[in-house]
Structure formats: structure tokens, C-alpha cells
Amino acid sequence: MTNTRIFFVGGLMSFRAQFNWLNPWILVPALLVSPVAQILLFAYVGRAAGVGDDQFFLVGNALNYAAIPCMFAMTFAISGERWGQTLGLVLVTPARRLPLFLGRALPVIVTGWCVAVFGLAVGSLLLGVRMGATVWPGLVLAVCVTSLSCTGLGLVMGAACLRVRDGATLGNVVFLLLLVFCGTNVALEDLPSWMAAVGERLPLTHGIEAARQLASGATLGSVSDLLVRELAIGLGYAALGLATLGWMERDSRRRATLERM
């Protein structure tokens, strides 16, 4: 029961606190305007370059933007506690670390999912991309899996924030890597082989590929291997993140670096 309470209530409180939510309008420019603007930017770049079609850029960038809340919220969950001088208090509690940190991940996954679905819906309206009603359930599932896997990477970054002082910069750099390496705007087969090889090992890549195939009418069964791979990569990063969190926590206590600003 205590673990469930830590998971849900602790996670929700941490999530609200990190955005300094005095009212939900902060979400509008940060999480609703920017993803649509990024989709439009690359859709028009594609049109100008005569590469791909609007649907290709719509799906790629909508899912890419799911990474933003997933990575940043996890990063800020740690650095925000430090900034609020509550990190020591959180880590000194006897609460189990798994619900403590996974509870902070849950609202982030939901946010990432909402951002990507909003981007897909509004982007398709603005660009005139027509996707049949039958496409959406599979697409929504792909978005959900991708949000989950990006949150796994977010956990690794959250762990790094126990040591790295500037979480915002770190988050942006990783977001940029995902933008360039994951086939967001250029299909994996058009990337140099070394970049494609890196992309194969990052979250997002297989989720985007699956979502593109689903948007083009593929069945859920035909992309299940891609979604399973995306999920496996995400879980791998989540396991790495949790292990690193434990290690960094112990190391921070030993070195007394927890509150270093």
C-alpha cells in the first residue's frame, strides 16, 4: 500500500512541482505549440527539398517530440529536487527506490503520449494528411510504447543529474542526438551506416518506423517486432537508469556531492 501511494501520489506531486505549475497554461507553449511547430518546420523543409511526404515528417517529428517531456521531466525530477533542496530529504527516506522513481516516470509517460498524439492530430489537420480511423488505435499504441522507451532513457539522464549540474543542457543534447540519429526526418536507410547503427540502439528509432508503417496502413501484427524491439530497448535503458540511480545515490552520499549546485 505504501509503495502504491509513493508510486502514484509521490509521482504526481513531483511532476506538478517540476513545472512550477501555478496554472496549466505553461503546458500550452512548451508542450503543445512547439511540437506542432517542429512538425510544420520539417514538413515544409521536406516539401522544399522534394523529399518524403508530409506524413513521413508528421509521424517522425510527433514521436520525436514525445521524447521531450519523457527525458526532461525525468531529468528535472532529480535536478528540481536538488534546486528545491529536497533531494537529500527524498533520498534519506526509507521509501523503496523502485516505486519512488517509477512513480515519477508514470505521469511523464502519459504527458509524452499526450504530446505526441496532440502533435499527430493537429499536425495532420494543418498539413492535410488524411489517416483513416482504423489507423489510429495502432498509432496510439506505437506512441505509447515510444513514450515508455524514451522515459527509460530519461531515467538514465535523471541518474546522471545526480552528478551533472546542468540537466537542461544535457537533456537538450540528448534530444538533438535523437533528432539526428533516430530517422526522425531522414529514413534510416538514407543515413550513413554508422549513424543508422547508432540509431538502432536508441529509443525512438523503431517506434517511429513502426508508427510510419502503421500510418501507411500496415497491420499491428506486421509491426509487432518493431514495437517489441522498441519496448525492449526502453526497458533496457530503464533498467540501466535504475541501476545507475542506485549507484549514483550511494556515490553521492560517499562523496557528499548530493547538494552540489
Binding site: 520539417f42 523543409v45 523529399v51 538533438l176 533528432l179 539526428v180 526526418n185 531522414v186
Partner: peptide, 14 residues
């Protein structure tokens, strides 16, 4: 710079 890179990668396809 990275967004410029992503943009030029799209243009580079053709």
C-alpha cells in the same frame, strides 16, 4: 547547429 544539420540532411537526400 543540430537543427541545421537535420535540415541539411533532408536536403542532402536528393
Amino acid at each position: 547547429l543540430m537543427f541545421a544539420t537535420a535540415t541539411l540532411m533532408v536536403y542532402a537526400v536528393n
